[in-house]
Design a protein around this nucleic acid. Sequence first.
DNA 1: TCATGCTCGATAGTGTAACTATCGATAGTT
DNA 2: AACTATCGATAGTTACACTATCGAGCATGA
Lengths: 211, 211
Amino acid sequence: MSQLCEASGVPVPSIKYYLREGLLPSGERTSANQVDYSDAHVERLHLIRALIDVGGLPVATAGRVLAAVDSPDLPLSYIFGVAQYAISDADLYDELEGPSDGTAIVDETIERMGWKVTDENPGRRGAARILDTYARLGRDELAAIPEGYAKGAELIARADLAAVATTSDVRDMAEIVVVGTVLGDGLVASLRRIAQEHVSNEMFANPRSES
Amino acid sequence: MSQLCEASGVPVPSIKYYLREGLLPSGERTSANQVDYSDAHVERLHLIRALIDVGGLPVATAGRVLAAVDSPDLPLSYIFGVAQYAISDADLYDELEGPSDGTAIVDETIERMGWKVTDENPGRRGAARILDTYARLGRDELAAIPEGYAKGAELIARADLAAVATTSDVRDMAEIVVVGTVLGDGLVASLRRIAQEHVSNEMFANPRSES
DNA sequence: TCATGCTCGATAGTGTAACTATCGATAGTT
DNA sequence: AACTATCGATAGTTACACTATCGAGCATGA
């Protein structure tokens, strides 16, 4: 129905596309050429567009993430894993470089912070890869994990888990985890940008105020 | 030359493509069909690939960022701006929604943290957009900026500026800003993932260790 | 010296992702 | 019955990031 289009703001051809790709479940068929869509479909479309437009996920990845949200009895840790895995470039994990300097730095930071994390955490490889990239570029002043990064990440993660703890409904938790992980990265990045400007002003105070 | 390809690991056709697109300056012509490339070209290629592959920038955006790095006398704040603007989806700024709830939350957070930031900071709109998205999804428990996010962002930004302060060479600073901004987002995101798992374990301690 | 083989720049083609448009068969509406 | 709208299937489009081909020009070795 085109009412669904109207209610959600998503063009009809795109809705059809998402139906084809399995992101959106089809509604209840009332006759051979009529299908009824509910409010849940409108919400689902909003979620889809949020993951794709704001979160920047490719359509296929969004599909995988939504499938995880839909599975009612997956453990929370697994949902976290899917969300995290989804936003790391999936093919990142094909180029399996063994232990590198970056890996060592990550391990050392985890140790120093007293974190308990499994070896499979996608963040490990992601962080190691970036540190290795810094090193390959010869940017040694960046090829480390500053204390501020680790502490900042922990503060942010505590806030994340606090948001998850506001509900006890499993389905709700799953959605908060997915949305909060996918869009949260962007929020953190934006705040980092704002804080950078502030700190930069603080350090390199403008000439007038310096004299 | 294909020595450049060998030295950098980038296939010849791609090098040609980057030359065409202006990401890579052409070398010194020694005859009508011979061009000499230097070590600087190899480093430039590494930088290009880092921005594209690891940082996830589109080629055109990488070009704009590199142009900013190449301009020797742009103020640091401008370089920050370019780097930040580059990784926010550029067309984000076309859909100019006026003041929204998200904008108010961002302003309020900036106030509360005592940050001094211009109105044009790209992070403002980026953060506001995400908060608005949370609200539209009905995820009210996420549609706020927790204290932990703001404090975490400031810690991270301080570490960022500390890295910039390791040099006084303007060109070097520009490159640190760009690389640190573009790749740093990924590093922060990865650390967030790691910390999330740790905090999650801490809160929902597994049954065995709880007894 | 001149054939072979590399280089250069220009142009055109490929593959993928995300839509978008068209079509024919219905099915409710007037 | 005529008209309009819907459904699913298939095909086409656009943008991006390469990738392949081509013709001309040296450049070196038999």
